[in-house]
Design a protein around this nucleic acid. Structure first.
Lengths: 243, 243
DNA sequence: ATGTGGCTGTGACGGGCATCACACCGTGCG
DNA sequence: CGCACGGTGTGATGCCCGTCACAGCCACAT
């Protein structure tokens, strides 16, 4: 059902074709029906703040399409990206489960569709369907693993170039298929984050990211044209990473 | 039931008096009986490695008494402490849930009792008793929150003194009650970690920790005698912390 | 006593990176 | 068009803190 905005909206969870590839959504039939009845679907433009760090948790968002950036900010305004959430993830879960304020600010990186479920209804939903709490556990497990990776990335690496190389390599695991591309070592990826955001991800400053990327380009390891970046020398980047 | 080692062993989960104050253990009667039948209790000396990072997850440990240190290590040998787990927590959960290798190395910090439950039996236990998966979700939530705190601590603070002050303050939330102590601003805490371990916790080097603590002592903010430390000027430490 | 091993204190040194500052470039908008 | 604005590139500067080196201390075993 493409809309005027050329955006496909998934109205009915039961008919959602992506379901089985998603972290959370692949639930038994009855649970899905219930979910369908308690969810509120909306489409949000890029840059929407779904959750605000520190605010009381109103409920969770299930991201149907799009991606979102989870970040946390210090009182001085310095902020760091916790992770990028993909479609099919539940956001605001930690806060909703423990009835505490949102841990992170969630901002959509693309036009996104999400199902909102209020705090109370979600907890009831959870208790009613054991399969749902299993899924919740899996989502939380995923969150933990991402967080541990981030800790390793920031805490164990020796230098900023290493951390940036690591980021590039992790992105390179989901490469872009360029149509007329001959077989080669080249890995094309789409990077929509700004250098400032990459800096937040790597726990460094914007300028340093710029310098490091220049360095990579100068060494012939990387080519950047707009939002499509091409990793030219994966082994070299890998050698930089010790973790 | 004090043993020859003057160590109280909890044989029967159903009779455990600590249960209701614990993160995981407060389960319904039937689940507890089942737990009782599938667990294997052991007592481990200080310094035992319960889980090894990177090894296939054999199952989970429920920590009955004692505390344990969760850490992760880079290939270069640099390592960082993820968190300190308290009695009542389930360890090895992330790995067991996602059937992946252990994320962290778990080392007992004190003589500790723990219940081991094998991988398969735990997952079956989980599916059988919905209340258990709720508890698992709560444990995972706790893990996430700790991880996020660690990320904030390492990624957002501007200096090592700030991070160490933060650690001290977090420990000061569970003060020691000194018997003959008059009312005062002084907060006594028990610190069993070495400076090297504190360094791992704060993502810095042992020497820097030593220097920072010296500094705090010189300024009259802190007094250290063996394993009992006394925070003399909490506000000063708080002022150092911006996160 | 003597050795050994783990923990702690302190000095010296130097490099990596945060910070400030400013120029450049494309895009959108009045 | 001219302007503002967000993103990017790059130089200069300085300092925090990691690293190396070594000494002192304590507990414990021989």
């Amino acid at each position: 059902m493409p809309t005027a905005y050329n955006f496909h909206i998934i109205q009915d969870c039961l008919k959602c074709t992506f379901r089985e590839h998603r972290l959370f959504c692949d639930l038994p039939r009855e649970a899905l029906s219930k979910l369908q009845s308690i969810k509120a679907t909306s489409v949000y433009p890029k840059g929407t703040l779904l959750c605000l760090e520190g605010q009381a948790a109103r409920g969770v968002y299930i991201l149907c399409t799009g991606r979102a950036k989870l970040s946390t900010t210090s009182s001085e305004g310095k902020s760091i990206i916790l992770r990028i959430a993909e479609a099919g993830e539940v956001l605001g879960l930690t806060a909703t489960m423990s009835k505490t304020p949102y841990e992170a600010t969630v901002e959509t990186l693309e036009p996104s569709q999400a199902n909102f479920i209020s705090h109370l209804e979600f907890l009831r939903f959870l208790e009613e369907y054991p399969a749902v709490s299993m899924k919740v556990a899996q989502q939380l497990t995923h969150n933990c693993k991402c967080a541990y990776n981030e800790i390793r990335s920031i805490g164990l690496s020796n230098s900023v170039p290493e951390r940036i190389a690591k980021l590039l390599l992790s992105w390179a695991e989901h490469p872009l298929d360029l149509p007329g591309k001959k077989k080669s070592q080249e890995i094309a990826i789409r990077v929509t984050l700004t250098q400032g955001e990459i800096a937040q991800f790597a726990g460094t400053s914007r300028e340093t990211v710029s310098r490091v990327l220049s360095e990579f380009k100068k060494k012939g390891w990387l080519r950047i044209k707009g939002a499509t970046w091409v990793v030219l020398n994966k082994p070299a980047l890998e050698q930089l990473v010790t973790t």
